[in-house]
Amino acid sequence: MIDLDETDRKLLRALSEDATQSAGALGRRLGLSQPAAWRRVRRLEEAGAIAGRRVVLDKEALGFGVTVFLGVKLATKGRVSLDDFERAVGAIPEVQTVQHVLGLFDYRLRVVARDFADFERVLRRRIMTLPGVGDVDANVLLSEERRPGPLG
């Protein structure tokens, strides 16, 4: 675990809001010089506090109006079954996240689709045919709001 001071926390909050900000913009925002802001970002990256930067796509603007969370219980257990399932589900582009979880289900999937007919096609033809799939439970996303991360 990295030791963070208040400036590091402010820097991480600023980057979590907009990861495209330059070191100069971050420095102006936090009262640092551009080189000082750059050094801090670099140190946080090297320490693993910043694991990467990404673009957040607007799924609706791209034509994906339905998001469904699926709980998947495997019919068979074992390391080979888990590996086979993870490899196969990872090849489905509509599956945005694959989470191996503890509880009622073995996996939680976030699936996007153009509409409910498209989701049904993905479920029937792609997900239900995966190796080892047993029970599946679906929860349709109605709304979502981004909450502040662990740094507030």
Rank of each mutant, 00 (worst) to 15 (best):
E6I: 06
E6A: 14
E6L: 12
R9W: 01
A14V: 07
E17I: 06
D18P: 04
D18R: 12
D18T: 06
S22I: 08
A23R: 02
G24Y: 09
R28A: 13
L30T: 10
L32R: 09
Q34W: 00
P35Q: 10
A37N: 06
W38F: 14
V41C: 02
R42I: 00
E45Y: 00
E46Q: 15
R54C: 07
R54E: 08
V55G: 01
D58R: 07
D58P: 03
D58Y: 07
K59L: 15
E60N: 11
F64I: 01
G65F: 10
L74G: 03
T76G: 00
R79H: 09
L82F: 11
D84N: 15
R87T: 14
A88W: 02
A88Y: 07
V89D: 04
G90L: 09
Q99K: 09
Q99A: 14
L102C: 06
Y107C: 04
L109S: 05
R110L: 12
R110D: 08
V111L: 08
F119D: 02
E120K: 15
R121A: 12
R126H: 12
R126N: 06
L130P: 02
G132C: 05
N139T: 12
V140N: 04
L142S: 11
R146P: 00
R147D: 01
R147S: 11
L151S: 07
